[in-house]
Amino acid sequence: MKVLIYFEGQQLLSKSGIGRAFDHQKKALESAGVPYSTDENELDYDILHINTYGLNSQRMVRKAKRADKKVIYHAHSTEEDFRNSFIGSNQVSAIYKKHLVRLYSSADFIITPTLYSKKVIEGYGIEQPIEAISNGIDLTRFNRNVEKEKQFRDYFQLPPDKKVIISVGLYFERKGLVDFVEVARRFPEYTFIWFGHTPLYTIPKKIRAIIQGDHPDNVIFPGYIKGDIIEGAYTNADLFFFPSYEETEGIVVLEALASRQHVLVREIPVYDGWLVPGENAYMGRTNEDFCNQIEQIIEKKAIDLRENGWQTAQGKSIQAIGQQLKSVYEKVLGN
């Protein structure tokens, strides 16, 4: 068995959750001993595992079908999480949905990150078998490291006693960026850092204005930062606050849980079945909810849920995902 993993537009999408999911797939297959290639010109393969939605992705599916290969579509995207993202996304979301339905329907099997996204895609009327498999988390990256934490504090010139609240994501309204900034206004004594980047010319004027300066002084938008600094931020910050309105999973939430970090998210359906408010994460629905909980968490008045959150992340390790992917591949070839 050999798998061709295809990912169109790697340079454009490498900083996104899909980009990290692609990296996790490769590590997962290596851990499970499944041979794979990422060379689109590869001919010696049994299954095309495709992650993207562009014209070349469609071409790769047609090419695989002509060669009588099996096709698995990894459904990272839905109409719901496309809305409130790029300029014009809401206006073309219905067209985007039809495009996704056409692509997903061309596959022999669909993988999607959560039971929630599985339910959404089933609601599109797609009849292909669908299995929910987490994008996974490379647990080794998120163990506490004092040197990484120092690099994080030094990079932002943060005094040891400065309270810090972080988030990670693209510059999308859908990610809750507006709410993140509005909550920050209520806590001028804390530093709020939003890690991530999206080309400014692709996002609506309102979001662009926030990034370019329409935000309080205690909010920092450092752009996309990887490696030791952000890994130090995950373990050293006082809270990971992710008020996203829509996700298909949320790899950054897994990263925060794996870092033994306090995690505060919006109560949305994607977390059903794996995040439980008051058990392994804090949840809210409004900015008022978030503010009340932030005060409790930062001042150490809330129940500490970090160990339970860490245990949740353990079940979504790269090794576990590798075995689940291997099982799907064997099932597809068997059919």
Rank of each mutant, 00 (worst) to 15 (best):
P188R: 03
G223A: 08
A21S: 14
I110V: 09
I203Y: 03
Q212W: 11
F172H: 10
I318N: 02
W310G: 11
I87T: 14
D272N: 15
T112P: 06
L48W: 00
Y53K: 11
R62D: 13
A258L: 04
P277N: 04
T140Y: 12
K205H: 09
I203W: 01
I50R: 02
K98L: 12
I111P: 04
F192T: 00
T114Y: 02
I203K: 08
E255N: 07
D272T: 15
G17L: 03
I229E: 01
R285S: 14
R141H: 13
V263S: 02
Y329E: 10
E307H: 15
E231P: 09
Q293C: 09
V61M: 10
I225F: 04
K331G: 07
I72D: 01
G223C: 11
L325I: 10
I230D: 00
N143G: 14
N84Y: 13
L55H: 14
Q314I: 11
G232K: 01
E79C: 14
A67K: 15
K301V: 05
S327L: 12
Q311N: 14
I137V: 15
Y155H: 15
G54E: 07
V219P: 00
Q11F: 14
K326H: 11
E279C: 12
V328Q: 09
S327M: 13
G250W: 02
G227P: 05
T198Q: 05
I193M: 01
G125P: 04
S16R: 12
L13R: 12
G136K: 04
N41Y: 13
S259I: 04
K301Y: 07
N90S: 07
L325R: 05
A32V: 05
E249V: 06
S14Y: 13
F172R: 11
Y190H: 06
T248I: 03
E246T: 11
Y124K: 08
P188Q: 07
D81S: 10
N236A: 13
D304P: 07
I225N: 05
L48E: 02
N90Y: 02
A67M: 14
E80S: 12
R306H: 04
Y36M: 07
I210Q: 03
G315F: 11
V332N: 10
D214C: 08
K118P: 08
R186N: 09
V3R: 01
V120S: 02
V181S: 00
I211T: 08
G232P: 02
F22D: 06
K97D: 05
Q293Y: 08
A258I: 05
Y201L: 14
V61G: 03
M1T: 11
R102L: 09
N143F: 14
R260W: 13
V178D: 03
L264P: 01
Y271A: 05
V178R: 06
Q324N: 15
Q212S: 11
I137C: 07
N56R: 12
P222E: 02
Q311D: 11
T198G: 02
F180C: 00
